[in-house]
Structures are given as C-alpha cells and as structure tokens.
C-alpha cells in the first residue's frame, strides 16, 4: 500500500518534471531571436516570398499570441505530436525513433561494462594497503577527469589504428560497439568507483561487519553479502550522474566514432536549428531521467527495509 502510494506520488512528480521541461524548452525557443517561419522554409537562403512566409506563420500559429502558441504546443504534445523536423521533413517522433535503437544499445553496453568494472574494482580495493588504493584511485581520477573524446581518441589510437582489433567507427555489429561503449563506461567508472569505495570503507568500519566476521565469514563474502548492499544505496543516488554521462557522452562518442544515434541527431539538429527535434530530444532526456529515478526509487524500497514513507 505504502509502496503503491509512493509510486503514484513519484509518477505525479515525474509528470510535473516533464511538463516543466516542455514549458522551459518552449519558452527558450520562443525567446530565441530569428524568424521561425524562415527556418521552417529552409533558412534565409531559401528566399521565400512574403505570401509563403505569411502562409507558414498562419499554419504554425506564429502570428498568434504566446499563450495560444503554448496551448496548442502542449495540446499537440499530449497527443504525442512533437511536430515536423524542419530539416528531415519527418515527424519528430519518427526521426527520434529511427535513432533511438543505436543509442540505447550503446548506453546499455556502456552500463553493462561500467557497473561490473566499478563493483569489482571498488570491492577488491576498499580498505587495502595504502599503495594499492593510491594506484587504483589514481587511475580512477584520470578516467573521471579526462574528457570523453580524449579517452575515445586514446582507445582508437591503441585498439584501432595500431592493433586493428576494432573498426574505427560505424554501426556495423557488436564489434563496432566495443570501443564507443568502453569510452562511455570508463568515464562513468572513474567517478562511480571512487564513490563506491569510499562508501564501502565507511561500511566496513561498522560493528555489524565485525559481527559477521566473528561468525566466521571470510573477507570477500563479508564485502559482498554485507557491505555491498549498504554501500550501493548512496551509489544508486548517483544514477542521475550516470544518465547525464550517457546522454551527454553519446553526443561526443557518436560523433567521434561516426555512429548513428540520438547524439549524432542532436548535434545535426543543433547545427541546423531544427527546433522541433531539439525539443523532442530534450523531452526524451527528461523522460529518461524521470523513469530512471522512479526505478531507483523502487529499488531503494527493495534494498532498504526502512524506506517505506512517501
């Protein structure tokens, strides 16, 4: 019952977040200088006639007051209509739908690499001799601090240009996914692993760990069965960081490895001021945040029996 109420509250809040994101992007687009009608018709180079411009303004309600435009925008959104891409002459949903699979695969692969790496490194290095921790922590700082495109370049130079193990780019098959996913994963691992190790080290000082050891449990099982669940709770709170790293990182990685995907679409849309697509991507990102946070929130209730209140 409490869990159900919690889900409902969160869904409501999530809906509010989406509405806020939609409104803010709309406001931003509304305030951007430049003639939207001109953009729709292909930019200043298209040299449209005054009649066509007026026609487009009327079609797109651009001659109406702000509140009317906003209302029609929200109304369309509710029906799942994000409008037409100026550049691709496609509905925005379709433009995004074509690209989302590639990015989802990339993100999933990155997470699938980053999480086991993070957990393994943090569990094995927590509370070890200080030289071990210094080395591991140093490596993590390098990955956390280096910009994604430099990590990607380094991987390309080593594994593609020199060793020829992996293709330098493209979307062909799982082999082409390895380096881009690894690039994203390393950036996530660098930060996440440090947080997890710090948490683990705090947890390993707790009396219940001593109790577990006093029962005859060996070191690794103590870390995995007792300490990890406690340490994982704060790390889950960082899922927002992970989502940001994946969304932001995909723009860079997809460009660097000349892959198709949402990131590449974002970049192209920004270059071409393809506003409906940009709005669509912003809304998509917001939706991903909302869903991920909802899932994490439910995971809390599974992991921590004390979390029951909404």
């Amino acid at each position: 019952m409490a869990v159900l109420r919690r889900i409902l509250t969160r869904l409501l809040v999530g809906f509010g977040v989406l509405w806020g994101a939609a409104s803010l992007t709309f406001l931003a687009v509304y305030l951007i200088p430049g003639d939207t009608a001109l953009l729709i018709l292909g930019g200043p180079d298209a040299r449209p006639t005054a009649e066509t411009l007026a026609q487009v303004r009327a079609d797109y309600l651009l001659d109406q007051p702000f509140i009317v435009q906003y209302g029609s925008y929200l109304g369309n959104l509710l029906q799942g209509d994000l409008g037409q891409s100026y550049r691709l002459r496609l509905p925005v949903t379709e433009a995004i739908g074509q690209q989302i699979g590639a990015t989802a695969a990339l993100s999933a692969a990155a997470v699938a690499l980053a999480l086991p790496l993070t957990f393994a490194v943090a569990i094995l290095s927590a509370q070890r001799a200080s030289w071990i921790r210094s080395i591991v922590s140093g490596i993590e700082v390098v990955f956390a601090a280096t910009p994604t495109f430099i990590i990607g370049f380094a991987l390309l130079i080593v594994f593609s240009f020199t060793l020829h193990w992996f293709p330098i780019g493209g979307n062909q098959g799982p082999v082409a996914l390895v380096l881009p996913a690894l690039t994203l994963a390393l950036a996530i691992f660098g930060t996440l692993s440090q947080v997890l190790r710090n948490e683990l080290e705090d947890v390993l000082e707790q009396p219940f760990i001593l109790t577990a050891r006093s029962r005859g449990m060996r070191d690794l099982p103590v870390r995995i069965r007792h300490a990890l669940r406690h340490a994982a709770i704060p790390v889950m709170t960082m899922s927002g960081f992970v989502v940001a790293a994946l969304l932001g990182g995909s723009v860079i990685v997809e460009t660097l490895f000349s892959r198709q995907g949402i990131g590449a679409l974002t970049l192209a849309s920004v270059y071409n001021k393809d506003l409906p697509v940009i709005i669509g991507i912003v809304l998509l990102s917001a939706a991903v945040y909302v869903v991920v946070n909802l899932v994490i929130d439910l995971l809390y209730t599974l992991i921590d029996p004390k979390v029951v209140t909404a």
Partner: peptide
C-alpha cells in the same frame, strides 16, 4: 570463529546488519 567462539558486541542495532 562462530563455531568455537561466539562474539556479542554492544549496541545490537549497529551490530546486526540493518538490511
């Protein structure tokens, strides 16, 4: 440990795994 020697700590709230 556990088999031949049992260990009881103070403050059972923190000495038992809360999860």
């Amino acid at each position: 440990r556990g088999r031949d020697a049992g260990f009881i700590l103070q403050d059972a709230l923190s000495s038992l795994d809360s999860l």
